[in-house]
Computed example of a mutant assay.
Amino acid sequence: MSANQIVAAIRKGIAAGEYAYGARLPSVRDLAEQYQVSQQTAAAAYAVLTALGFTKTAAGSGTTVTAGPSADAHLGTFSPPDLTKGTAWKPTGPAGQASDETYLVRQSTAPPAWTDWGFSEGSDVVERHRVRRVDGIPVQHKLTVLPYAIASHRPDGHEGVPPMLAPVGAPPLKPPAGMRVADWLGWDVGHTECQITAEPMDPAASEALGMPEGSPGFRVVNVTKSGDGSTLYVTVTTAPLHHRITMEILG
C-alpha cells in the first residue's frame, strides 16, 4: 500500500466521522503495522495529511485530527454570463505569458473509480490531457474524459476528424468566438456539477506538473450532464496549492 492510499483511507474516516476532531491517531510505528508498510511510508502519509490540514503532529502529543466530518459549501446555481469574458487560466500578475498544450489523446475504458462520474465501468471513453504553462512553467493539468460516442460528434459542415478525437499535434479546432464547445458540437447540455477539493495529486497530474507524486494540490472536477441526466463529459483540473481559483458572479 502506498502513502497516498493510506491518506485516502484516513481522509475517508475523518469525513465519515470515524476519527473525531481532536482524536489522536496511531503512532507512526502502529500505523505502519496496521497497513503493513514501512515506517517511512507511514510518516509520509502523515506528512501529506498535515500539509492538507487534516492533522497536526506535536512532540509528546503525537498526530491528532484537526478536521471534522465532511460538509459541502454550495455556492449556488448560476447561468453562464458572456462567454467571451471567460479566461481559462491566466497569470496572477500583470506579467507572464500563458500557453497550453494537448500532450496526450487516447481511447481507453472507464475504471471503477469513474463510475462516480456517471461512466459505466469498462465503457469506451476518450481521454484528452492538457498542460497549461505560464512563462514556460507548468501550472495546471487538465484531463477531459467523455464517452467515445460523444467524442465522435462533428460540428455542422465539418468533414474531417471530430475535434475531440483530433490527435496530438493536429491543428487546433475551436468554436466561433463566444460559443461553447458543447453548443458547437451539438451536445445536449443540461447542467454541470462542480467539486473543488484540496488533495494529493494523481500520477498524471504530478508528472505533467513536474512535482512529486502525491503533492497536495487543488482538484476541480466538473461533471457535465445531458438533459436526460447522462454524463456528457468530465473535466478534472489540477493545480498546485499556491495558485488561486477564482469565480466572478455578475448581477
Score class of each variant (00 low, 15 high):
D82L: 07
A98F: 00
W89Y: 02
P94F: 01
L75F: 05
H74L: 13
T84I: 13
D100A: 08
T77L: 10
H74Y: 14
Y103H: 10
L83V: 14
D82M: 09
A88Q: 11
G96V: 07
G96N: 09
P94D: 13
A73S: 11
A73W: 10
F78Q: 09
W89E: 00
A88D: 03
T77W: 06
F78C: 01
K85Y: 06
Y103C: 09
E101K: 12
H74Q: 13
T102K: 10
A73I: 15
A95L: 10
G93H: 14
G68W: 10
A73T: 13
H74A: 09
V105P: 02
T87I: 00
L104E: 04
P94Q: 04
G93S: 15
W89S: 01
P69N: 05
T77Y: 11
P69Y: 02
Y103D: 12
G96E: 10
T84H: 07
A71S: 03
K90S: 13
P69I: 03
P81Q: 08
Q97Y: 00
S79Q: 14
K85G: 04
P91Y: 11
R106W: 09
R106K: 15
L75G: 05
S79D: 13
L83K: 12
T87E: 02
Y103M: 12
A98N: 01
A73Y: 08
P69D: 06
T87H: 01
G68H: 04
H74F: 14
A73P: 00
H74D: 15
T92C: 05
A98L: 01
P91S: 09
L75H: 11
A67R: 14
T87F: 00
Y103K: 04
S99I: 04
A98Q: 02
G68A: 15
P81R: 15
K85A: 14
E101A: 05
R106N: 06
R106D: 14
Q97K: 03
S99V: 06
D72F: 02
E101I: 03
